[in-house]
Amino acid sequence: MAAGDGLTPRQQERLEQAVETARRENGLDISVLVGDLELDDVSQFRTASERLHAALGERSPSAVLFVVAPGQRRVEVVTGPAVRRRVPDRVSALAVLSMTSAFRGGDLPGGIVDAVRQVADAAGRRKGQSIADERRSVMQRRADSMHGSHADPGAKALH
């Protein structure tokens, strides 16, 4: 498979897992779009991303959307009004920073997965989740990370 031909099934699986983990453990509705947008001008990127965020329908107010355009080399994080307290703009900015530095180095899936985790961790656990649940999910995450091969000490240091 040549470069630029998209994500491999394994990479797609990793992204799906990251999104699913954020939903399950942090109660955070994150979705990630990887692909270039059809735009006349790249300056419309933010507007187009907000439109994509609106396309999430009733999920939109409490959803976090990552738009990653590898060809246009733009990344956008859009947060709904109901979730902005859990994911303030500075958290989004930090996630964007860690993504751009990873992408520059050629690590597309790794950068996205780490940024999703970063945002989910910053958002904390979902409301009403007990300490016991939290502990269980931490243990589960540890077990997961032992199996996974996505350890990236450089990106982790950003937390």
């Binding site: 998209g6 797609q12 939903r23 990630v32 692909g35 590898p70």
Partner: peptide, 19 residues
């Protein structure tokens, strides 16, 4: 060689995870 290279562009269809 599935590694992403910024200079080579991207010609894959968009994918929306959790969309």
């Amino acid at each position: 060689s599935s590694r992403y290279r910024p200079a080579r562009g991207w010609n894959a269809a968009p994918l929306w995870f959790g969309g």
